[in-house]
Design a protein around this nucleic acid. Sequence first.
DNA 1: GTCTATAGCAGGATAGAC
DNA 2: GTCTATCCTGCTATAGAC
Lengths: 194, 194
Amino acid sequence: MDNPMENISKKQAIMNTALTLFVNQGFYATSTASIASQAGVATGTLFHHFPSKEALMTKLFLDTKHEFADHLKQHLSKDDSLQTNARNIWFAAIDWGINNPNKESFFQQYSMSPTISVEIREEAMNSILGFISKMLRLGKQQGLLADYPEALMLEICHGQYLAASRFFIDHPELWQDEQHREASFSMFWKALAI
Amino acid sequence: MDNPMENISKKQAIMNTALTLFVNQGFYATSTASIASQAGVATGTLFHHFPSKEALMTKLFLDTKHEFADHLKQHLSKDDSLQTNARNIWFAAIDWGINNPNKESFFQQYSMSPTISVEIREEAMNSILGFISKMLRLGKQQGLLADYPEALMLEICHGQYLAASRFFIDHPELWQDEQHREASFSMFWKALAI
DNA sequence: GTCTATAGCAGGATAGAC
DNA sequence: GTCTATCCTGCTATAGAC
């Protein structure tokens, strides 16, 4: 057939369904048969698009991390101060989590699970954290950020983000509350600032 | 037989082995048969002590959380200032993680995984976080801590702890480095302080 | 309490028609 | 590319002797 949309939509349906089921039931508790049936395709079709269940998981993980990183990068501006950039990225990151709760939960669950191989997790980390590292170094040069060891600062940034987005996903209405929004960024910034 | 040590050690061997395997391979990737054989017991023995694989997991999770909380509480002192208590608890918590890397990884992986039911996770959280909440309220009364929403502060505390202990478990030698130790507490405290 | 042996079934992956 | 049908491994849990 020569309707490429058909293929794309089937493949995409499998990925969407798989992500939802992996988040809600866990990877091993989700059978390939259930992914296929809920996606409205046959099991054979799933294995036509992905050589194995694990390969499906890997593709899902890397695609989602890249999507997240791309979203953040759109909110960087050469014209703004470091603190303004940090602020904009912080809010963009949590916004993304609020708007993509499944994908955010996916990170929460699988960013440090042995379900995903170390190599894949590190690959994902670097594709995201590269530009954050640069920002940390810049902030130190400008005398805005404390001179803590960089790797530790990165881990704390990541941890604060996971914690804050976890909180706001559990309580989406509070993301509309100015006090909560500001408090989240304030704790993030104060931890790092001089 | 009337040697209770025999039973305890078999049961304990199953639990120790299970924790290690769950951390390294994941819950579903670990068969009850492999737990039993590596623990040096028969599968029947495992199911004599635990009605199901899931029950084994639940017991492991709650026992470990309680052990952690008990360790922290030992480092609270009525005579010390809030900041000193916070500091002592912070170091005690990471120390515990360094000395129990398996158990700490276990938290990292399963504290937000659907492998463990929400009820069990909340039960564990409350048994630990109860006294932390009290400390936060006290700090606000004393004008030492910022007046952010309590639930959000708790989540950030938890997130910073997970991030820091993850970092030091990956780089145990840096836990001996004064700069790294102090930086970790400094970021924790500054995030919360007024 | 502990063992051996096995029931019973679920699920990943494949074959082959269309 | 998609489907149906099915193979076959590997797993949880049980039965029953010691």
